[in-house]
């Protein structure tokens, strides 16, 4: 949380990206504590590894410093605080943390946990649910990853067109 607050404050984008890596790693640890080793592993590799590199690459292509604006952003602050207060008010009515009687543990999870070895022979429930019970979902996610990759390739693959100085490149020929 402290790391996230520091990200919100810092102006230097390079520092923000580095703090983002640290933040992801803390998040991976938190997920590990919450008994989600699969998710934690992915978060550590993706958040602290891949996305940090991508952010750095984007920074290299753009620029490092954020221009400071001195006016205090009052409206976003107000919106955030109000939204946070509402969410907190709602969250305190949720079932307490770690309660085995919570509604989340009553629906399909017991069936997954009880029948998974009998039906699929795979002891890691996460893998079994991912690939088998929810195979359609995962297929969709894979296609989304494919689409994201294709979009990036389309946006960044072409030759960089030289910009002529002094003329506004956008808007003149677009409209």
């Amino acid at each position: 949380m402290a790391v996230a607050a520091a990200i919100a404050r810092t102006r230097n984008l390079f520092a923000a990206v580095a703090l983002g890596g640290i933040y992801s790693f803390c998040m991976a640890l938190a997920l590990l504590v919450l008994d989600a080793p699969d998710v934690s592993m992915t978060e550590a590799a993706v958040g602290a590894g891949v996305s940090t590199v991508l952010l750095l690459g984007a920074l290299y292509l753009t620029r490092i410093e954020e221009t400071p604006n001195h006016r205090i952003a009052l409206t976003p602050l107000l919106v955030s605080v109000v939204a946070g207060a509402t969410l907190l008010y709602g969250a305190w009515a949720l079932p307490p943390f770690g309660d085995p009687a919570g509604p989340i543990h009553q629906h399909v999870a017991p069936r997954y946990l009880n029948d998974v070895v009998k039906e699929t022979g795979v002891p890691n429930v996460v893998t079994a649910v991912l690939a088998s019970y929810r195979g359609f979902d995962t297929f969709g996610e894979t296609v989304v990853v494919l689409t994201g990759g294709l979009g990036v390739l389309l946006l960044l693959r072409g030759r960089r067109r030289p910009l002529s100085k002094g003329t506004a490149p956008i808007g003149k020929d677009a409209t």
């Binding site: 891949v50 590199v53 991508l54 690459g57 984007a58 290299y60 292509l61 893998t127 690939a131 195979g135 995962t138 894979t142 990853v145 494919l146 994201g148 990759g149 990036v152 390739l153 946006l155 960044l156 693959r157 960089r160």
Partner: peptide, 24 residues
């Protein structure tokens, strides 16, 4: 299915990295 996921995910990430790094 997992093999398909592995191939797509890894190659997409590497392709994105190539795209960003090759742009510079």
């Amino acid at each position: 299915v997992e093999a398909g996921v592995l191939i797509t995910v890894s190659s997409t990430m590497v392709a994105i990295y190539y795209a960003f790094a090759g742009r510079g």
